[in-house]
């Protein structure tokens, strides 16, 4: 019996030791996992902040892409519509100029155009070209300019004149078409302003 009690006491000891070890291990495991959890919280928070911040950046980027593209798209359409309207105004104005009455002040205009061209070319020895419609007006005005001659050749234009020096080296285009072309950017601005665009 004595040997049995010794055996039981040894087993008890072993069991107690094992229990103690297991409890210690469990406790240290618990502590360790608690510690890991505690350590992980700031990392988690920083990762969370990073994800949120990256997400915000990405969202901002996408928002910029979408709003940028749509703003540009709308603006471009507006520009095209405006240009179409400006062109319509232009063609209607050109039509009116082409059909304008050549009597009255028109002869004075032709005189001014010839005068201007002669001054710019620096010579009065010139040949003047005009369209069929203006030929008579130009012919009657030309007599006031000695050295100027009307060419038998006609040119295609809305009105006005083209002046060439006698040697053919210099030409000054003072047709209404050329004057409109020179002033077109300014005229476009004026027309656009009537539509409420620009100044």
């Amino acid at each position: 019996m004595a040997s049995n009690s010794a055996l039981e006491s040894t087993i008890d000891k072993i069991l107690k030791n094992t229990e103690k070890n297991i409890l210690t291990n469990i406790k240290s495991g618990l502590d360790e996992s608690q510690q890991k959890l505690d350590d992980a919280i700031p990392k988690l928070e920083s990762e969370y902040d990073k994800i949120i911040s990256n997400g915000k950046k990405e969202a901002d980027k996408i928002e910029k892409q979408i709003t940028g593209a749509s703003d540009i798209g709308v603006r471009n359409k507006q520009l095209l519509v405006l240009e179409e309207a400006v062109e319509r105004v232009f063609s209607s104005a050109l039509e009116q100029i082409a059909n304008a009455d050549r009597s009255g002040d028109y002869a004075n205009l032709v005189k001014t155009l010839i005068n201007e061209a002669i001054q710019i070319l620096g010579t009065s020895e010139v040949t003047i070209f005009t369209n069929t419609k203006d030929k008579d007006v130009v012919q009657s005005t030309i007599s006031q300019f000695s050295g100027a001659k009307l060419s038998s050749e006609t040119i295609e234009c809305l009105g006005g004149i083209k002046v060439k020096s006698k040697d053919g080296a210099m030409t000054f285009d003072n047709t209404i078409d050329a004057r409109i072309e020179r002033l077109k950017p300014l005229i476009r601005k004026e027309i656009a302003a009537k539509f409420g665009v620009g100044n």
């Binding site: 080296a169 210099m170 000054f172 285009d173 002033l183």
Partner: peptide, 23 residues
């Protein structure tokens, strides 16, 4: 932008590389 200028010259003396010499 003015309506001054606009004289066209037709005597080209020389064309050299990217340059044109007008007489």
């Amino acid at each position: 932008m003015t309506i001054e200028g606009g004289v066209q010259y037709s005597k080209i003396a020389e064309i050299k590389g990217p340059l044109v010499v007008v007489d």
